[in-house]
Design a protein around this nucleic acid. Sequence first.
DNA 1: TATGCGATATTCT
DNA 2: GAATATCGCATAG
Length: 186
Amino acid sequence: MDTLDLAHYLIGKVAVHDVAAGRLSGRIVETEAYPVGDPAGHAFRGKTARNSSLFLGRGYAYVHFTYGSSFMLNVTSEARGVGAGVLIRALQPLEGIDLMQCSRGVTRLMDLARGPGRLAEAMRIDFRQDGVDLCAAGPLWLAATERNTGTIGESVRIGLTRNIDPRWRFYERGNPYVSGPRRLRE
DNA sequence: TATGCGATATTCT
DNA sequence: GAATATCGCATAG
């Protein structure tokens, strides 16, 4: 499975994070792929201290901090030593909603995890989760779900300045928890 | 609803 | 010193 397949596959799956106060979980409704050789990907210029988690192999967390205020959660893809990953851009909150409202400071369900920075804040993701194995037992992991997923749409990625053209963003069509302008949610 | 801009910290040049 | 896989508030329509 390559990076694009993984980005598609992750839609409808559930991300779970157990913290001291309880369990936080949400259904993934929006992702973006950053495959091998993508100039917009953090691994493009080689391995550094910041992005080393991207090279761990498939199924690890890569947590990144940007714009002075936002963490972002990625799932690594490809083989060990190859830098590529999938950015989780939005969740539909399932469990621990009261905890998310507390950490985000808002009450509207739609505003809890719509957008990568909000998502990380709601799920209490930070550098401590960088490099965690998401397929093994631990506080943070990915679970499959029995629930049906709607049609999956694709679009250009959001917020990039390089390599804008490829349609490597995937989302569940019409789901109100998807981020971005309206035309990119339908 | 849509667009614009400043805040903020870490990394790389 | 510049750039950045963003957010929230401001303003205008």
